[in-house]
Design a protein around this nucleic acid. Sequence first.
DNA 1: ATTTATTTTTAGTCTTATCTAAATTATATT
DNA 2: AATATAATTTAGATAAGACTAAAAATAAAT
Lengths: 221, 221
Amino acid sequence: MANTQSVENYLKVICNLSEFGKTSVTTNKLAAAMEMKAASVTDMMKKLANRKFIKHIPYKGVTLTEQGKKTAMQIIRKHRLWELFLTSTLHFKWDEVHNIAEQMEHIESDELINRIDKFLGYPKYDPHGDPIPDSKGRLPLRNSTSLASCEAGYSGTVTGVQDHSAAYLNHLVLLGIQLGDNLKIISKSDYDKSLKIKLSKGKELFITQDVANNLMITKIK
Amino acid sequence: MANTQSVENYLKVICNLSEFGKTSVTTNKLAAAMEMKAASVTDMMKKLANRKFIKHIPYKGVTLTEQGKKTAMQIIRKHRLWELFLTSTLHFKWDEVHNIAEQMEHIESDELINRIDKFLGYPKYDPHGDPIPDSKGRLPLRNSTSLASCEAGYSGTVTGVQDHSAAYLNHLVLLGIQLGDNLKIISKSDYDKSLKIKLSKGKELFITQDVANNLMITKIK
DNA sequence: ATTTATTTTTAGTCTTATCTAAATTATATT
DNA sequence: AATATAATTTAGATAAGACTAAAAATAAAT
């Protein structure tokens, strides 16, 4: 009855790459994201399609079915709640939690994850600013945009990251940028699209387009 | 490098059945404890022997090597710490935690389990009174004996159970017996070895030999 | 000391999930 | 439109871990 960890991982990654089921995902993209060979992915796609988790159009890609999305959301919920537990209760740093949560997300017990949810106070966002699905699989909405897409003069609050790699997260720590920080775009270079920003604490700094691309903010004005 | 969950389960069960490596375990006993067929167990014994976790004498049984014992103790440590976390932090009942801990014990992260240990205040015993190995694999000692082995007149404190089944644990709840309770043996029946005991709260009750056999106490006098 | 019963092992099969290499389909380029 | 390139799928192999059925070893009972 229960799904294997492998099946859960595929569904989770498909869900993330498809923006929660909105778009279709190609075999190679999936293979790259899962660090597996395309042939292995094709194999699994057949199995997942048989079990009605996805719709697979050969040579074209896959999309999640309602059932597949529902299952994937529960795994993402578990992953994000465990990440938050690890940082807020056990004081892990935000770049250390991913690998452990990858394991914990497969623990099979609705009761357990609901109690963790309660223990944490029914949080809406994980340590990287990603929204946590509730027990019904519903996502809280937040209209955040990439910092790179904002013009000079705008202010905003840092709400999340798109790149979850330890390297990127550590780079932000180095720059002194944290989730929840307010910042203002002073200017934008025409030369390399780098940004001069001012943190609410007063500190001014330059960040590259790459860094700005992966930083999510909610525009204030 | 890491061991599979299956390997970890075998080592854990061997360790428990062998009284932490002291005695040898037979194929059939292991098969029964793991709810598997004897043939499957033999297969795995060869693999574990190859990897120097156990010594296997065909047709005779297996014993843990030092390495095998060390590995098993870490799994038992994780199991017991997670059981305590589930009861003390998430308020699960003591008969509900086993299945979940069976899964959590396989999470691979020394740092994680050490932080849980610290979070719980470096506890020495789990919710069933079983000793928790420390990070080096050392077990706290406690000289407890089965209540059934004590004579009338003796007093003691309930320290643990030998039967971990939900049925037994619920039966104790029904009787009103908890870990840490003090009790005194009023009399012992020659007819069926049942015991009349008095709890420190004042309540008197009769318990069968079976129940007494599975209840561990430290004799006070 | 044979025979019977029990325990354990061997041999061969199955499933899941991965891989490599080859074949096929789709896309891009002249 | 033909061909080259890239993406995807098929076919066949492998490893882990479980199973059944049969063979072998040990233990028990006459």
